[in-house]
Nucleic acid binder design. Structure first.
Length: 476
RNA sequence: GCCCGAUUAGCUCAGCUGGCCAGAGCAGUUGACUCUUAAUCAAUUGGUCCGGGGUUCGAAUCCCCGAUCGGGUACCA
């Protein structure tokens, strides 16, 4: 603060200044010619994150969008007056540095400053340079500080953006149309979750925020857009945890004249593309040391077989509700005693099987009660034509052969609405009655996908600004 | 929602069997230093020990209430 007013008194307000950036920290090393031990003149710019002053010469490091670049500033090269002004710069200030390249004794390619310009002053100190910022609350509340000092956070969040870009390019290249559908919905459908509500003054009515993208996208199938996808935020007013965020990003894809098996190929090829173009590996290291192998064609397993295998009970599915309840409890899981038959079985799946599916596994033939929007399996009408892809012990992507029979769809909705207090989207049913082509559809939780690919343990590490409780008072 | 844990300088943390002034490193400030890599060396500033109440001659430390955060758990096809 005092420094700033001194600067202004001295007639140089840094906030009026700007500078050139011809290259980034990542581009500079490739410009250096090892044979001549020299490089061209460059202009780099960034925030000072290292400041090592040694009398009449100083090393600084600038942080730009690609990382860090070292600069060497000498009094005899920028002049006495400029150097004494430079010495007053602080960690955290933004500067531009221009000059040729050289290699230090330690072998680091460095910009030898011919000029240094202060372009923005930092009036608050940076977090500790060695330990970085560790306070989790502050990491999320002041993400900008986290990004400055914690390289891991930077790379995860940059990777997220690049992953989404690969997904888009993959789908574009297969002639999918990217669309945007409404966040405000009169009936929040396509999933079962408590919605958030908001109000329109102009229309004098209440809206839910969407909990899924599904129903509007299927209307587009009816309308003849037979390959569509959307990447967007959905909102669920439920608990927050390491794996749950109230707003999160979904990809939903619908492809007519395909089915859930087509979605398998689509998703696998998408992940393989990311491995190849971005990660440079098909093996993902988990924090616990396990490795997820994404190469190849991935395992398939029937829901029923997984259950029978886990319960070690060949008669599981013919047992009574009470008997299942007893046995599930004996396996060491908590089950709501009021649960329906299929819910008990699904608790066994969710609590005992899913967490163990670290390697990619397509779980197929789910019981129809769990999935009201999918087609029944022709061979076994108690199951549906779907897969639930589990990787990293989490459900990453469910996909269906989408239900396009309006009568069957209405029945499934009514059954669901009877159990839970849920409204039926009648307009969607009307749309189905106009005819929807057979289609495969898939939903992908982008945040969880990034979590898996980046090997992080907390969903919030993949979200730039996670939802937090507002600060009670004042500012720091 | 419930159960555990945490909260001390701008940041990272120590101190917690109740007892001389609440400490260190980094950052800041002042000085020395023309190849540093957590630069080094010397000096120095900085505290509502999360808030409130209680026990006690005495509380950062023990007890109660509250706030915030984290972990687990529940809800979430």
């Amino acid at each position: 603060m005092e420094k700033l007013s001194k600067l202004v008194e001295a007639g140089s307000n840094p906030f009026f200044a700007n500078c050139e950036q011809t290259h980034t920290s990542a581009q500079v090393p490739s410009l250096f010619d090892e044979s001549t031990e020299s490089g061209p003149e460059v202009s780099v710019a960034g925030r000072i994150v290292v400041f090592r002053l040694m009398g009449k010469a100083t090393f600084i490091k600038l942080l730009d969008r690609d990382g860090r670049i070292q600069c060497y500033v000498r009094q005899d090269e920028i002049g006495e007056e400029a150097y004494s002004a430079f010495k007053k710069y602080d960690l955290g200030d933004f500067v531009g540095v221009s000059g040729p390249l050289f290699k230090t004794k330690a072998g680091e390619i460095t910009v030898r400053a011919k000029s240094v310009t202060l372009v923005s002053k930092s009036m608050r100190p940076l977090p500790e340079k060695w330990h970085g910022l560790a306070d989790e609350d502050q990491i999320y509340r002041q993400r900008y500080l986290d990004l400055i000092v914690n390289d891991r956070s930077r790379s995860i969040l940059q990777a997220r953006s690049r992953i989404v870009r690969e997904i888009r390019e993959h789908l574009w290249s297969r002639d999918f149309l990217e669309v945007e559908t409404p966040v405000f919905q009169t009936v929040a459908g396509g999933a079962a979750a408590r919605p958030f509500f908001t109000r329109s003054n102009a229309l004098n009515c209440d809206f839910s925020l969407r909990i899924a993208l599904e129903l509007p996208l299927k209307r587009l199938l009816v309308g003849g857009f037979d390959r569509v996808f959307e990447i967007g935020k959905v909102f669920r007013n439920e608990g927050i945890s390491r794996r749950h965020s109230p707003e999160f990003t979904m990809l939903e894809v619908y492809q007519a004249y395909s089915d859930y098996r087509g979605m398998m190929d689509l998703f696998r090829s998408m992940i393989h593309r990311i491995c190849e173009n971005l990660l440079g590996t098909y093996d993902i290291q988990r924090p616990d040391g396990d490795v997820i192998h994404l190469a190849g064609s991935w395992t398939e397993a029937r829901y029923k077989d997984l259950i029978l295998n886990k319960t070690q009970d060949p008669d599981w599915f013919s047992r009574s509700r009470e008997e299942k309840l007893k046995r599930a409890t004996a396996l060491g899981i908590e089950v709501d005693p009021a649960s329906e038959d299929f819910e008990i079985t699904n608790d066994v799946f969710g609590k005992l099987i899913e967490p163990t599916l670290i390697q990619p596994t397509f779980v197929t033939h789910l019981p129809k009660e769990l999935v009201p929007l999918a087609k029944l399996s022709p061979n076994d009408p108690s199951t549906v034509e779907v897969f639930e892809l589990c990787i990293n012990g989490q459900e990453i992507a469910p996909a269906y052969s989408e239900q396009n029979d309006p009568i069957a769809q209405r029945e499934a909705f009514e059954k669901q609405a009877g159990e839970e207090i849920q409204k039926i989207d009648h307009d969607f049913l009307t749309a189905l009655e106009h005819g929807m082509p057979p289609a495969g559809g898939m939903g992908v939780g982008i945040d969880r996908l990034v979590m898996m690919l980046m090997g992080t343990q907390n969903l919030r590490d993949t979200i730039l600004f996670p939802t937090l409780k507002p600060r009670a008072t004042g500012e720091s």
